[in-house]
């Protein structure tokens, strides 16, 4: 990766630490307006949607089927109530079989 990576890591560390540190150290419990705290609370779920689609279909270049099978498997295991690890390992398992026989 090289030096660019370490600069990026430095930047990531700063922008991760600031939101943790400032309110705890310097604020005296001021309330945010409800619409602002609502939007902030929404971000973790919205970002997941944006991260998954459409990138999941292009995981293996030129093979959309790989991504489709992966997405279907992961959603299926998650919906029937598998935890985080069963979802990840199960999906890898199915795609390992698929890539062995391709």
């Amino acid at each position: 990766m090289g030096p660019t990576y370490w600069w990026m890591l430095f930047g990531m560390a700063i922008v991760t630490y600031i939101p943790r540190m400032i309110p705890l150290t310097f604020m005296d419990g001021k309330e945010l307006p409800p619409i602002v705290s609502g939007v902030l609370g929404n971000i973790p779920y919205a970002v997941l949607g944006a991260l998954i689609f459409p990138a999941i279909f292009f995981v293996q270049e030129g093979n959309i089927l790989f991504g489709l099978i992966g997405a279907a498997t992961a959603f299926l295991i998650a919906i029937i109530g598998g935890g985080l690890m069963p979802v990840v390992l199960g999906t890898i398992g199915v795609l390992a079989v698929y890539s062995l026989f391709m």
Binding site: I52, A78, V88
Partner: peptide, 24 residues
Amino acid sequence: EFLQTAMSIALYAMFIGLLVPSAK
């Protein structure tokens, strides 16, 4: 090798595994 190929999906499987329980 084939396991490493299969593991390229892991990141997205993890995102799905994080999203679905909250979405239910």
